[in-house]
Computed example of a mutant assay.
Amino acid sequence: MRTGRVAWMGGIHECSPHGEGSIRLADGRIVPEAEVVWLPPFEARTIFALALNFADHAAELASKSSKEQAGFLQAQHAEPIVFLKAANSLVGHRGLTRRPRDAEFMHYECELAVVIGREGKRIPRDKAMEHVAGYTVANDYAIRNFLEPYYRPNLRVKSRDGGTVLGPWLVSADEVPDPMSLALKTTVNGTVVQEGNTRDMIHDVPALIEYLSAFMTLGVGDVILTGTPKGSVNVNAGDEVVCEVEGVGRLVNTLAEDWPVSA
């Protein structure tokens, strides 16, 4: 099953796919996609994100960073590097993400997002997948020159308004029998710039659920962004970025100029 959320005619509606270019609202009405504003496909509670969960991406960033930062990026980690994101960072399918005026290198991060559907604490690895409601696609933008001077990742990159795109669909877990064997792909203006596979994660989905639930209760609506493979290319205002996760969906987003300065 695939479900989404949209704003249309002054209300927020749950929806499902319905043929090319249209969606079906929960009340049965068929609406053209062009008439709706897409929202994240579920109401997120806690947003967890993984840093450096693909070894090839860590090596790629090290090659583009200062000597000090490169040493950190190349370090092997025995446990996941996890940080939290604020809800204001989320934007839906076909939404806009602003590129800061002083960004020197801003790049997409195509990720599999795991959505928790059953509360749990101290969940063992062999029971972890029983707590997964489903999956969606995430694009969690990063701005390298904002990250470089600080212990990464820092607040003004990873919780900035609209910096994380989510959707379009929440795909139920039964439709994704093996989340650890899914192809990831990103295109910018139609050109493929990033490819990878979830099997290359350092810490897989069951391990992440076991780790997080060991010290905090996971609840319905929590979402885990599981990291991104190599393939970082600078993006600019006007670029269309499409992130795809095999069997989960195709997430479209456009870069825009920074917010105007308030008078």
Rank of each mutant, 00 (worst) to 15 (best):
G4L: 12
R5L: 04
V6R: 12
M9I: 13
M9H: 15
G10P: 01
I12F: 08
H13A: 03
E14F: 15
C15R: 05
S16W: 08
H18E: 15
E20H: 12
G21S: 07
S22N: 09
I23L: 14
R24N: 05
R24M: 04
R24G: 12
A26V: 05
R29H: 01
V31S: 11
V31Y: 03
V37S: 06
L39C: 06
A44G: 05
A44S: 01
T46C: 12
A51H: 02
L52C: 13
N53R: 03
A58D: 03
A58F: 08
A58R: 08
A62G: 06
A62V: 15
A62Q: 11
A62D: 07
K64A: 06
S65E: 09
K67L: 14
E68M: 11
A70I: 02
A70D: 01
Q76D: 13
Q76I: 07
A78R: 15
F83H: 08
L84T: 01
L84G: 11
K85S: 07
A87C: 10
V91F: 08
R94I: 10
G95Y: 04
L96R: 02
L96N: 00
R98V: 07
R101M: 12
D102T: 13
A103N: 00
C110Q: 14
V115G: 08
G117I: 07
G120D: 01
R122F: 14
P124N: 14
R125K: 03
M129A: 06
M129P: 08
M129S: 05
V132I: 12
G134L: 01
Y135R: 11
T136L: 12
V137R: 02
N139G: 08
N139F: 06
Y141I: 09
N154D: 10
R156F: 15
D161R: 11
G162Q: 06
V165R: 15
L166T: 13
W169H: 06
L170T: 09
V171T: 14
V171W: 10
E175A: 13
E175S: 15
D178G: 02
P179L: 05
S181C: 03
S181H: 04
L184M: 08
K185L: 13
K185R: 15
K185M: 14
V188Y: 03
G190I: 08
G196E: 13
G196V: 14
G196L: 12
M201Y: 15
I202T: 10
Y211T: 07
A214L: 12
L218T: 03
L218K: 05
G219W: 14
T226E: 05
G227I: 08
T228M: 10
K230N: 10
G231D: 08
N234D: 11
N234L: 05
N236A: 14
A237E: 01
D239G: 01
V242M: 00
V245P: 08
G247P: 01
V248Q: 02
N253E: 05
E257H: 14
D258S: 02
A263L: 09
